[in-house]
């Protein structure tokens, strides 16, 4: 057997072409956001920025309560992140550090929820939210997933690998109550894992389409993915405005990712290889 070694320029070419293919949709989204509907469908399609951004934004805001939808998206994503971090860290800490009856069975149950396909949850979710009177309310989007299996699992692994039990015992001897130990000792040490889970949760909430589709009824309560979808119709879609909305919706995530990609990647591997 002999091994192939790609010359450096060949490797860069492959990676470069791959990157272009991946980036093309983003590029066209931003370009189309500045062109009118007729420009977009001209041949060849526009490849550089145009002058119709303001006009598109005008169409967008006249068709939709766009800024309100953006605000609701932001509110749901932030609340979802905060609640998920709180409950998953508590759950993960408990499963990692405490001994209690039925612990293994309970953990198996939590993990088991990951086996249920999300489509099976759609109708029950609607019925439960309806029974609670939470239809058209943002809390229907951030409360149900606050203690989710993935988050609890991630936290449990991280606590298990990076918080020695003696630390908790030392705090106990120092007169710290159990809630105090969680808040003053455990939570600060979980920061890398909290950062990772926070990012994942924020992104998932921001992009969530099915969830709002099930529980949000009136356009004033739509989140962005739902609102932008409402802009489309079989016969008459304002593609320029749609692209403008999509581009604006992408910006928070891009900023978030630029600020924290290092954390996101390192956090996903910490605990795994420690």
């Amino acid at each position: 057997m002999h091994t192939h070694r790609l010359a450096p320029w060949a490797a860069y070419t492959v990676v470069g072409v791959g990157a272009l293919i991946m980036l093309a949709p983003f590029w066209f989204m931003f370009v189309f956001a500045t062109h009118s509907r007729t420009d977009i469908f001209s041949l060849p399609p526009p490849l550089v920025f145009g002058h119709d951004f303001a006009a598109n934004l005008g169409i967008l805001t006249s068709h939709l309560p766009f800024w309100r939808n953006l605000g609701i998206s932001l509110y749901v994503a932030l609340a979802s992140t905060a609640f998920t971090l709180l409950f998953c860290s508590m759950g993960g800490y408990a499963f990692a550090m405490f001994e209690f009856r039925f612990k293994d069975a309970l953990f198996a149950l939590v993990m088991g929820t990951m086996l249920v396909p999300s489509f099976m949850n759609m109708i029950p979710t609607f019925m439960i939210m309806d029974a609670l009177g939470w239809i058209d309310q943002p809390r229907a989007l951030f409360i149900p997933g606050a203690a989710n299996a993935f988050g609890i699992f991630l936290m449990r692994q991280f606590v298990g690998s990076s918080i020695p039990p003696e630390l908790v015992e030392a705090a106990r001897m120092d007169g710290c109550g159990e809630l105090g130990i969680y808040w003053r000792i455990v939570l600060p040490l979980l920061r890398p894992a909290l950062g990772t889970l926070g990012l994942i949760t924020f992104i998932a909430s921001w992009n969530n389409f099915i969830g709002p589709l099930i529980v949000m009824r009136s356009p004033e309560m739509y989140t962005l993915p739902l609102a932008l979808r409402a802009l489309q119709s079989p016969v008459d879609t304002e593609w320029g405005a749609l692209m403008t909305g999509s581009a604006i919706a992408t910006i928070p995530l891009l900023l978030l990712f630029l600020a924290s990609s290092r954390q996101l990647i390192s956090g996903l591997t910490t605990g795994a290889v420690k």
Binding site: P164, E166, L167, E169, A170, A171, R172, M173, D174, G175, C176, I185, P188, L189
Partner: peptide, 27 residues
């Protein structure tokens, strides 16, 4: 444990990593 008037020194030291030495000792 905190009411027994005992203090423990652990094999792994068990210092709080996110606190300074003074904060550790004064906790």
């Amino acid at each position: 444990p905190s009411d027994r008037g005992t203090a423990m020194v652990f094999q792994s030291y068990a210092l709080y990593p996110h606190m300074t030495v003074a904060e550790n000792m004064g906790f």
